[in-house]
Computed example of a mutant assay.
Amino acid sequence: MSLSSEKIGEVLVISASGQINSANAAQVESGLLAYVEQGERLCALDLSGLDYISSAGLRVVLILARGLKQKSGQLVLCGLQPQVHEVFDISGFLSILTVVASRSEAVSRMGEPVNKTV
Rank of each mutant, 00 (worst) to 15 (best):
M1V: 15
M1G: 15
M1R: 12
S2M: 14
L3G: 14
L3T: 15
S4N: 15
S4W: 07
S5H: 14
I8P: 09
E10G: 14
V11E: 07
L12P: 04
V13I: 10
S15F: 02
A16W: 01
S17R: 13
S17C: 08
G18E: 05
N21L: 00
A23N: 02
N24L: 01
N24F: 01
A25I: 05
A26S: 12
A26W: 00
Q27I: 00
V28R: 00
E29N: 09
E29H: 07
G31Q: 02
A34D: 11
A34H: 03
Y35H: 13
V36L: 03
V36S: 06
E40L: 04
E40V: 05
E40P: 03
L42D: 10
C43L: 15
L45M: 10
L47W: 07
S48L: 06
G49D: 10
G49K: 11
I53T: 13
S54R: 09
S55G: 13
S55H: 10
A56M: 13
G57C: 12
L58M: 13
R59V: 12
R59F: 04
L62W: 04
L62S: 06
L64E: 11
R66K: 15
K69W: 04
K71N: 10
V76D: 02
L77I: 08
C78L: 05
G79H: 06
L80W: 01
Q81E: 06
P82G: 09
P82A: 08
Q83A: 07
V87I: 12
F88A: 00
D89Y: 00
D89W: 00
I90W: 01
I90F: 02
I90C: 03
I90G: 03
I90Y: 01
G92A: 03
S95I: 08
I96S: 07
T98S: 11
S104C: 00
S104I: 02
R109W: 02
G111N: 02
P113G: 04
P113E: 08
V114Y: 04
V114Q: 09
N115E: 07
T117A: 03
